[in-house]
Simulated scan of single mutants.
Amino acid sequence: MRAARALARLDEVELGDHVCWRMDPAATFADARGYVADGALYGDKVVVIGSRGSTAIGRDGGRPGSVVLDLPHPADTEVLLAAVRREARTAVREGFRSVRVLAERSPSAAPGGAEELLARELKLDEFASESGAIVVCAFRPTQWDASALEQAACLHPHETGARAARPAFRMFSTGADRWSVDGVVDSECAAAFNAVVRAAMRCTPTVRLRFDALEIIDAAGMHALVDAARHLPDRRIVVEGANETVRLCWELAGYAAVGVPVVMAA
């Protein structure tokens, strides 16, 4: 079972991990040389995607069979996902244990690009969960709006690097169209929660959220959840694993009613 956790170093990764690497201002991609070199140790095919600096360590530190991809649009998660899926299929045929991805992530400037990026980040996490691939997404905080980076970070169950802006909650794949919510969803992060749930609603008509590891969801968080479900017609959310207190608060808030597209399962 996947669980959210912080990593002191990139060499602590495990199969199926999807890591948000918040790069410190002084950090460079040379700091990931050990992660890349471990591909040879564990029998993983290394796939490096991103800037000149990131691809350079792939060329220097990868084993024979490693791949360096200079994608024309590295900010496009759909392009990135298609590339790593292709390399994962090839890795199986070539006898590798798995793929070990290092990808530099950049914000999208296209209209509606922020929500599209989140939807595709969810697909990338689902890929890591299903395939057992290790995916490290490198973020340079200086390139990102703080709220956009917070939302993107919420969709990575694992993190390393700068910790000052650790997200209050995380939402990550635990199966097809199933997502675990870990941490706290309150008024301070309700907008981010609304954004990531809306992104999930774009991917499937029914989203199943597991609340087993959720510590708190307050009134603002509940409103954000219902608002996200109402964002698209003919979609719904099924919440599973909520504790008795959460279910009671849900009923008292009036959400356990016909017409509300969120079902709080027992």
Rank of each mutant, 00 (worst) to 15 (best):
T160V: 08
L155H: 02
A224C: 10
L214S: 09
A165V: 05
A153I: 00
H223F: 14
N194S: 12
L149M: 06
E150P: 00
G241M: 10
S147Y: 06
V239R: 05
R178P: 07
F139P: 01
S147L: 11
R198L: 08
L149E: 09
F139L: 01
R140Y: 00
V197W: 04
Q143F: 06
A191Y: 03
E240Y: 10
A165Y: 04
M201R: 14
C154R: 06
T204F: 03
A190N: 03
L248E: 15
D234C: 07
F193H: 11
D186Q: 09
W250D: 02
V197L: 08
D186M: 08
R140S: 08
R140A: 11
C154G: 01
R140E: 11
A191M: 07
A191H: 10
R208M: 10
D218F: 13
R208F: 06
M201D: 02
W250Q: 08
A162S: 11
A219S: 15
N194Q: 14
Q151Y: 01
L214K: 12
L149R: 08
I217E: 04
N194K: 14
A229N: 05
R236W: 13
M171R: 08
A153W: 10
R230W: 09
D218N: 14
R170A: 08
C249S: 13
A152N: 10
N194A: 12
A199P: 11
D212G: 02
D186V: 08
A200C: 00
D182E: 13
E188S: 13
H156N: 04
I217K: 04
P167L: 11
V181M: 04
D227L: 14
L209V: 01
A195C: 05
S173I: 01
C189S: 15
C154H: 00
D145T: 04
V246Q: 13
A164Y: 08
A152T: 12
F211S: 04
H158R: 01
V207L: 14
A199E: 09
F172W: 03
S173G: 06
L155V: 04
L232Q: 12
E240S: 11
E150W: 02
E240P: 05
R247S: 15
R230P: 10
F169K: 00
G221Y: 05
E188P: 00
N243E: 07
T245I: 11
A200G: 03
G183L: 07
I217N: 05
D186N: 14
A152E: 14
G241L: 11
R236Q: 15
R247Q: 14
R202N: 09
D186L: 09
R170C: 00
